[in-house]
Design a protein around this nucleic acid. Structure first.
Length: 977
RNA sequence: GCGCGCUUAGCUCAGUGGUAGAGCACAUCCUUCACACGGAUGGGGUCGCAGGUUCAAGUCCUGCAGCGCGCACCA
């Protein structure tokens, strides 16, 4: 046993033990050790972006995973926490492009695809490990021998296999459709990557001439012949206008720059104002040099109430317009370049301008030609590219799409919340493995509804990205002179058997294959690989099994020891912001390729915000660097602080004070152990039941209670409740009362009693360090060894490391009987502490400094053992405590009542009769209020006749107690007169 | 528009129909030999509003308001 320094210094301790754990292979999972007696427990890490730096969201997320993993080890399970990183297509590519621009003033096109990718790999090798190193600082017990990267060779092979499989199943197809185009990243995005944001802009009203209007227009609804609008009930209605014998329509738009792309205007067929014009044509005003005639079509999509009831239809630049275009066979005229500038078809005035600049110019042009009628300020929702934070451009382009597989299973497996599903059957936390019949639970369960809603409305997934960094689509094409030639070249591929899936699309032969040798022969044969890469999430959704060596070959996979031992995984811990991106897709993939769900439980964390409730962001600068916090307070402190302020599923308002509290907690723990050590004596001696005082019994029963509460909270994933219990038990119960009470024995002259108290302290601390360990891995390991608790244990039960010490069990009946733990002792202790609190209160009431020793007197209600009285004296910080059944206090002596008797503080020379009178009178008033409350209830016939007996009895007891209290105060007041 | 969450002490939040809780902050006292990153004591709450169910509601139900989030979306 080495001596413990005065203040806890986390840095050296953390460094030392993390190295120890790694060197000893404590984090390494061995599937061969998994058995019925030693069930497997597994988590796959949500792979952070390889470009990432640790932020507080990671701290919360990974601390939870580490707590689960460490708890499972102590529960005797074989634990795999599988770490890794994600190649993060756009983010990483952008980062490297920026560096290239900054350092060499070059673009990726200057280098070319291959050379650029070499740069990205080089960058990844240099910077990609940062976040992994940071996770180690946090104490994460990941199996680093199994670290994976989504671009690892094996992993890429999985991605390709899955693609080919889906292609073969006909779920993947290529099509020219409207997609979300990011003009900055210059790639298509999935619907999930588009974020709707309200934007302030304008609604421009412009008129177009109907070229072939009927001679006698029907009277427009609303009266106004020839008027552009009519106000009725304060509402503006619109209709066709007649000016100089010409009929015009008024159209409202937020995007006048797309007018050159209009190929129709549309009205609702039920709209009487325009019915007579359907089938006619209008003159499109822009571009001025190409004012084409475009038809007026009728479409149900048009909202009669909105705007003027006339919609300009731009099939190439709006999803809804595209659909209208399809219904009416309208041509699509694309007036934009991929980078968001206007192209030639937009006309001479707009060509080359950025879309936002073009918007202003187009509006000005309309005004110039007299077509602009008015402009209104207008706020509407615009889709933004989540990554580049610019408005996305709906764009017609050729992309790869996926019809989601496994949707039915994915929907069915997640238990829908709202029922009476309590913690019973709550998966496999807390050591109990409850079969869930293939079902999965979300925590908190309200996310199940969100998940289900999304799954019931999903659209096909656009999986191709116009990037270079990522998994390149494993499809090769060869274009031939005619269809027959194409067919022949596809035929030739049958020599490869099922390894290649080939099709003919017109004159083009298409072949998808994941087999390297076939790929090589295709390239050799002049086939061209699709230039696009796959959406990053198309690789992430395979994470739970692709990381475990899945091959896609059923015979091989059935023999894979990792998959057998650790799939399905036990828990997934992630943020609700990726429930669609990742969680839902992993569930589908799990069913599709493993035939089983990928995890039993999903824990959704909250979002970390600053203390004002704002999201953490780089621009606000409100995001503290976790490594700074670790350096300042220690990793344990950070973990404890964050966990303590993170209730299940609620956002966390982060305050550095929380971490400070964590540090204080560690320091307190440190010093409590130091106190134990300074007492010397035998380590973990035998507890003699005969020598247990009421304080000893009390703390043992409190420990039992704490363990029960902690187990319950763990079963419900309520980690902040665990921390609350740890805090209360250790600080308020163990330190504030038990250790202070124990000092009476240490200062006394009974060595047997002293030794017994030491044994109790060791017992409690030994349990406490273990339940603390998942939250505070470093300090508990250090103290476990310093206090010598590891010494007599077998190596695999805590002898080597607290990591695998057995998780404490609540006491069973035999234990309680053996140690004579009973509620009367507990009540005695509670009564003592109650009495002490009242006695201490005298100091404040009568302005007696805390350091002044005073003499108390106690007139006991019954027998009080001398060692119990010693404890009271010590806790009161009393010079003496006179225990005297016949004690008669001097007049004016403050008194306090408790079940143990009357406590007096005779204040020699300081008697203040008035002050004590005032104090007692105040208290009497309080008591009177309580008595009134209870009497009122008990006087209520309804209550007394219907309330259950125990409740009634409790109320009667309450009344008796308060009444007794009232009599005592009255008696005390009598004495003052 | 649909859905979800939140509203309890100055702040951040627990709270399981039966005597309103914690941490921080605040006030007073104390460097007493584990800890000032500490100890002791205390003040502070019409539990968002309005109804309802119940002997009993912070807790269950209905409605409303405010805040936040998600989904959808009209140019």
């Amino acid at each position: 046993m080495s001596e413990i320094p005065k203040a806890y210094e986390p840095q050296s301790v953390e460094e030392k033990w993390y190295q120890f754990w790694c060197a000893e292979g404590c984090f390494t999972a061995d599937p061969a050790r998994v058995s019925d007696q030693r069930p497997g427990y597994s988590i796959v890490i949500p792979p952070p972006n390889v470009t990432g730096m640790l932020h507080l969201g990671h701290v919360l997320n990974n601390t939870i995973q580490d707590i689960l993993a460490r708890k499972a080890r102590m529960d005797g399970r074989e634990v795999l926490w599988l770490p890794g990183t994600d190649h993060a297509g756009i983010a990483t590519q952008v980062q490297v492009e920026k560096a290239l621009k900054r350092e060499e003033k070059k673009t990726k096109h200057d280098l070319g695809r291959e050379a650029f990718l070499e740069r990205v790999w080089a960058w990844k090798e240099k910077h990609g490990g940062i976040i992994i190193q940071q996770l180690k600082k946090l104490g994460c017990s990941c199996d680093w021998t199994r670290e994976r990267f989504t671009m690892d060779e094996d992993y890429s092979r999985c991605v390709q296999k899955v693609f080919v499989d889906l292609y073969q199943k006909g779920l993947i197809y290529r099509g020219k459709r409207m997609v979300n185009w990011c003009p900055v990243s210059q790639t298509a995005l999935s619907d999930e990557e588009v974020e709707m944001k309200p934007q302030k802009g304008f609604l421009w009203y412009f008129k177009v001439e109907v070229a072939d209007a009927p001679a006698a227009p029907a009277a427009p609804v609303g009266s106004g012949e020839g008027t552009e609008s009519d106000e009725r009930d304060g509402k503006v209605t619109y209709g066709p206008m007649v000016e100089d014998g010409k009929t015009c329509l008024l159209i409202a738009t937020t995007r006048p720059e797309t007018i050159p792309g209009d190929t129709a205007v549309a009205v609702n067929p039920k709209d009487p104002r325009y019915a007579h014009l359907i089938g006619k044509h209008v003159i499109r005003p822009l571009p001025v040099e190409n004012q084409a005639r475009i038809p007026i079509v009728a479409d149900e999509h048009i909202d009669i109430e909105f705007g003027t009831g006339v919609l300009k239809v731009t099939p190439a630049h709006d999803k809804a317009d595209f659909d209208i275009g399809q219904r009416h066979q309208l041509p699509a005229v694309d007036v934009l370049n991929p980078d968001g500038t206007m192209n030639e078809l937009a006309g001479a005035d707009l060509k080359g301008l950025d879309r936002f600049e073009a918007r202003k110019v187009a509006a000005a042009k309309l005004a110039e030609i007299g077509a602009l009628v008015k402009e209104e300020r207008y706020e509407n929702n615009v889709g933004f590219s989540q990554r580049a934070d610019v408005p996305i451009e709906p764009r017609l382009s050729e992309q790869w799409f996926l019809k989601y597989p496994g949707v039915t299973s994915a929907r069915a497996c997640v238990e829908q919340g709202g029922g009476d599903s309590g913690s019973v059957g709550g998966g496999d936390v807390g050591g109990k493995v409850v079969p869930l019949a293939g079902r999965m639970r979300f925590h908190p369960d309200r996310w199940a509804k969100v998940y289900d809603h999304w799954l019931s409305n999903i659209q096909d997934w656009c999986i191709s990205r116009q990037l270079w960094w990522g998994h390149r689509i494993p499809v090769w094409t060869k274009t031939h002179a005619d269809e027959d030639a194409a067919r022949a070249s596809v035929e030739a591929l049958t020599q490869h058997g099922p390894a290649v899936v080939a099709r003919v699309e017109g004159k083009t032969a298409c072949a998808a294959t994941a087999v390297g040798s076939v790929q090589e022969s295709l390239v050799g044969g002049g086939w061209i690989q699709d230039p696009d890469v796959l959406d990053t999430w198309f690789s992430s959704w395979l994470w739970p099994f692709a990381t475990m060596g899945w091959t896609g070959d059923p015979a091989v996979d059935a023999e894979n020891p990792m998959l057998r031992a650790f799939y399905p995984t036990s828990d997934l811990v992630t943020g609700p912001d990726i429930i669609f991106f990742w969680v839902a897709r992993m569930i589908m993939a799990g069913y599709e390729w493993m035939g089983d769900l990928p995890f039993r439980n999903v824990y959704f964390t909250g979002i970390i915000r600053d203390k004002q409730g704002r999201k953490m962001s780089k621009t606000l600068g409100n995001s503290p660097d976790p490594l700074d916090l670790i350096a300042k307070y220690g990793a344990d402190a950070l973990r404890f602080g964050v966990m303590r302020s993170a209730p299940l599923g609620q956002d966390v308002l982060f305050d550095e004070k929380d971490v400070e509290l964590g540090r204080n907690f560690c320091n307190k723990l440190w010093n409590a152990c130091r106190f134990r050590q300074l007492q010397g004596g035998e380590v973990e001696g035998e507890i003699d039941p005969a020598l247990l005082g009421s304080d000893d019994q009390w703390i043992l029963l409190r420990l039992d209670q704490a363990i029960r509460e902690i187990d319950e909270a763990f079963a419900d994933y309520k980690f902040n409740e665990v921390t609350a219990t740890l805090y209360r038990f250790f600080w308020n119960e163990f330190c504030d009362w038990y250790l202070e009470a124990a000092k009476a024995a240490f200062q006394g002259d009974d060595p047997a009693r002293k030794a017994n108290v030491l044994a109790v302290i060791d017992f409690v601390l030994g349990h406490m360090l273990r339940v603390f360990h998942p939250f505070l891995p470093f300090i508990t390991e250090e103290l476990w060894h310093d206090l010598g608790y590891a010494e007599d244990l077998p190596e695999d039960q805590g002898g080597k490391t607290i990591m695998v010490a057995h998780w404490p069990k609540p006491f069973d009946e035999d234990f309680k009987v053996h140690y004579g733990l009973e509620s009367t002792a507990e009540q005695l202790a509670t009564a003592k502490y109650d009495l002490v609190t009242k006695g201490r209160n005298f100091r404040r009431e009568f302005n007696i400094p805390a350091n002044r020793k005073v003499a108390f007197a106690l007139r006991p209600a019954g027998r009080l053992e001398s060692h119990e009285a010693d404890v009271i004296r010590l806790l009161l910080n009393a010079e003496t405590l006179e225990v005297n059944p016949d004690y008669v206090p001097p007049k004016g002596t403050p008194s306090a009542h408790s079940p143990l008797g009357e406590l007096y503080l005779p204040l020699e020379g300081l008697i203040d009769v008035e002050a004590e009178k005032a104090r007692l009178t105040k208290e009497l008033a309080k008591v009177a209020v309580e008595i009134q409350k209870v009497e009122q209830k008990l006087g209520n016939e309804n209550f007394t006749s219907r309330a259950p007996a125990p409740i009634l009895a409790e109320h009667h007891q309450r009344l008796t107690d308060w009444q007794a209290r009232r009599e005592q105060i009255k008696a005390a007041l009598e004495c003052l007169i």
